[in-house]
Design a protein around this nucleic acid. Structure first.
Lengths: 151, 151
DNA sequence: GGTTACAGCTTGAATATTTCAAGCTGTAAA
DNA sequence: TTTACAGCTTGAAATATTCAAGCTGTAACC
């Protein structure tokens, strides 16, 4: 049961499971986003805007190019959810700040994301265990994204 | 520690963790796909082609429209990884079958996906636990995708 | 048997998303 | 002050995805 082969197989299965869950979550996010009149990318941005930040920081959090972050920020700004304010110390940078409406919608979004989430089928205790494992997995692998140069 | 409020907060955090992991996995998949000369969608299709199946089944597994599955299948066919064969009992349907090259590339892809995966930081035992939890989560929530009709 | 409704797949147009290259303003270090 | 670079934006381009329409075939029903 603990042969290298069975390990490899189990790891593949696990990879598939996580991928499946990831897609499920992606669908979930998109559905909830649509329910709020947002696109998936806009919802992601809203979720990542845990506080005031620059365009570059948002782009990094979203895992995309700054120009794409500009695109999404434009949409959110037109929707009145976001404001670009001058940065306190660097006049090149913009400080992204959620408006009152933006903050409110973000709350609604987070609530929707939690409700009926693909994780709702687990008990609180199971979710705690899952939380610990995911936290370990994410913090343990702290080198995949930064380079981003495709070789 | 078990008040409804702290539960809600924990669930949000967990949701964020899973989302973060999902994005990490998405990036991971794309990087490995690029390394093999595939796009992310093509890699997903290749991963889902666990055996012969119809276009509709592939589309369902990929979570996209049949027309998109056609698009991706065209690419894979041009790459010589895939064959469309007549279905045994239904002449409307096509049977998608991986070629020898397709099967080989799929193996390489799966190996790459497992290697340095965002889950590599966990011990075997932890992965087993995670496996069980994810399996439960995925099978417990068996109603989000099927309808697919937005509101 | 023939007819009607529907399923599987494909096509082409339209849309959305993302990246790339280039440029502008501002910062920082020499 | 000059040079190199950082942050952001713009527009063009590539890519991905969906939608609407149509073709062929299946199945249920009269």
């Amino acid at each position: 049961m603990t042969t290298p082969e069975s390990q490899a197989v189990a790891e593949r299965e696990l990879c598939g499971l996580v991928n499946g869950l990831a897609r499920r979550i992606g669908d979930h996010v998109r559905e909830r986003a649509v329910a709020l009149g947002l696109t998936s990318a806009q919802a992601t941005a809203l979720r990542e805007l845990t506080g005031p930040m620059t365009m570059t920081e948002l782009a990094e959090r979203m895992g995309c190019e700054p120009s794409n972050a500009t695109f999404v920020a434009d949409k959110l700004e037109k929707l009145g959810l976001l404001e670009r304010r001058p940065h306190a110390t660097d006049r090149r940078a913009k400080q992204l700040v959620l408006t009152r409406e933006g903050t409110a919608l973000r709350e609604r979004l987070l609530d929707l994301l939690v409700r009926d989430s693909p994780l709702a089928g687990l008990t609180q205790q199971e979710q705690d265990v899952l939380h610990g494992l995911l936290h370990r997995a994410v913090t343990a692998a702290t080198s995949p994204s930064p380079p981003a140069d495709s070789l």
